[in-house]
Nucleic acid binder design. Structure first.
Lengths: 361, 361
DNA sequence: CTGAAAGCGCTTACAG
DNA sequence: CTGAAAGCGCTTACAG
């Protein structure tokens, strides 16, 4: 167990006061070059690293961000969504010399957990990736007044900072794509309806039908939880209802649905088409390659961290809302042929600046 | 921005000294019941939460663990290994009132990153899940003298604490299973050869052949990096060499290999058998279901955290080494029929207490 | 059982 | 440009 150096010792070694050493460490310009050099050399020499705890306590800032992710959510394992998100957060934090504290918390937190996250004062701010509506943590953070940001907008508090994608618009576009190809019995496997992403994607699905003056068949709407497993299970229920296409609110649900289709002898896209959401790496690799709405997951995490850091360093600036662009990636899983070309060729231009089409190379 | 309560204020409100409040908070037995109650009530009433920073600085312990995972490793995204591991760590930490600081660090750390992890003093100990041999972080931690534990043994420092599975033994058993079924041209897609798990699984593969007095064909050994993609790519190279079975050192490499097999018109297990490693959820779901070596990933993370916490709280106790049991899970991907029953039925009993056979329900 | 005091290792006005 | 001093919010011997 090495004895850790302190400011005091560096001061002694370099023949200055500890105030001066502190100033050198903090790049305070009003230190004589000569002095600075001497101190820096000593620091280098003994490989001194200031104690982050003491620094934070005295300075009032920890340079730590809390990242809260719902524990137990199957998506954590079935799907690289959260890993990629975490990496985005981590990279942005590294770039700004922040560290990240990870909380995999049960969504119905015990009161104690919330207190720990909120009042610990171990982090300067919080990123909530749980996206649950009416998350009690949000209320607690609001009350505490410490900076935080959500991944995914919060419908009950529109004045909270968040970063999100246009889930409604992107989904509308995906459904429109299927409609344009002639599909009519388009089912959807939704995300959890207690998460805004799940709600918004379902809403986008409905909007597309309304835009086209087509009826919505409630029998073709089933609720999943973003996991591969739920995609499989819900697809099994959907098959007897004979959809000709499916929009799954996540790629892994689409992968699960494909598994169910295969087991039931359905050929994709010949017998049934499918579109996913996310564009995780696996989407391009399955058979057939999955048409999907690509969202910038890593960037979402990075932007969340950056906006939060900004919020911490400039507290006056009001809540920030960031909407990141998505794009529809066309691959093999929804076919390309127009099935019933009659009267379908309406040029509905979606009002969606953030969404683009791309064709996968 | 709420004003945060301090010990001092609680003391004033409850008419005692701040020493007493501190004792109440820390469950010091030598406080009169009556006093304790009064203080606790005030604490409850104003929802006071002690400042963790100050507590740590004064107490010398932060109750924070650092978890270091190699960034950029494709496995982080292609595979739930790290997410499940993280969850294990997180759950154990929650249970012991520890928090976890996550470091997704480039494996060839900048010197600065190492310093931050090691000397920050923001955490009481470190879990290294990078498993890279000759990790500079290990040297730094060793020098610093602060407690840490590895996921995966370290061949150069056998006296470091770690938790691992018997990779050699498990693999030997998996290969023996294939040999017993009559396969002879058994290829392997190894893990990265700069990680001990990759090395040990390859070593187990070789050991099995030696045990059976069979030659090892270097053409049937290709190196992957645990990712689905590398499984696909290396399998493409392997196919012309006509293996009749493949042992992939991770399930996702097996999944990638299956993709290559399918594209080349090979039927599994009719034309070629395959065994994976990990038993991630997807293993049971692909077509055909994957025979694999199940390792307790979440438990590995949990045990690592628990042993580390123990090491922190009882520093004298020497290095701990934990080997967790694995089991061979037999599913459809390697077939069941003995192909060439002649002379194969040797009853080699592997010397492996930690490995069991199970058949998936 | 309780309090006054020193101390954890820093930062940051305040003087000079 | 530099130092002495107060302070961040706790813990923990030391007295009593």
């Amino acid at each position: 167990m090495n004895h850790s150096m302190t400011l005091e010792e560096i001061a002694k070694l370099s023949g200055v006061s500890r105030s001066t050493v502190s100033r050198v460490i903090n790049d305070d310009p009003k230190v004589r070059q000569e002095t600075r050099q001497r101190v820096l050399q000593i620091i280098q020499q003994v490989n001194y690293q200031p104690n982050a705890l003491a620094r934070s306590l005295a300075g009032g800032r920890t340079r730590v961000l809390s990242l809260v992710i719902p524990e137990g959510v199957t998506r954590l394992f079935s799907d690289p969504y959260f890993p990629i998100l975490i990496q985005g957060v981590s990279m942005a934090c590294n770039a700004h010399d922040y560290s990240v504290m990870l909380w995999l918390a049960d969504p119905d937190y015990e009161r104690r957990t919330i207190s720990r996250i909120v009042q610990d004062k171990l982090s300067d701010g919080t990123i909530i990736a749980s996206m649950l509506n009416d998350d009690p943590l949000v209320e607690a953070l609001l009350e505490d007044g410490s900076p935080f940001i959500l991944i995914g907008r919060n419908p009950t508090h529109e004045n909270i900072s968040y970063v999100d994608v246009d889930n409604q618009g992107s989904t509308r576009l995906a459904i429109a794509h299927l409609l344009r190809l002639g599909y009519r019995r388009i089912a959807t496997i939704t995300g959890p309806q207690n998460m805004i992403a799940g709600l918004d994607r379902l809403e986008g699905y409905k909007q597309a039908f309304r835009q086209w003056d087509l009826p919505i068949d409630p029998d073709l709407i089933v609720e999943g939880d973003f996991s591969e497993d739920s995609g499989y299970t819900t697809m099994q229920r959907l098959i007897p209802r004979r959809p000709d296409a499916v929009f799954a609110a996540s790629d892994y649900m689409a992968i699960g649905a494909l598994r169910a289709m295969r087991e039931n002898g359905l050929r994709v896209p010949h017998d049934i088409a499918i579109i996913g959401f996310d564009d995780v790496p696996m989407a391009a690799r399955i058979d057939p390659p999955l048409t999907t709405v690509r969202q910038p997951i890593q960037k979402t995490g990075a932007i969340a961290a950056e906006v939060l850091i900004d919020l911490i360093e400039f507290p006056k600036t009001g809540p920030r809302r960031v909407i990141l662009p998505t794009e529809l990636v066309i691959r093999g899983s929804c076919g390309t042929a127009i099935r019933t070309p009659n009267e379908l060729d309406r040029t509905d231009q979606p009002d969606l600046r953030t969404t683009n089409f791309v064709t996968d190379s």
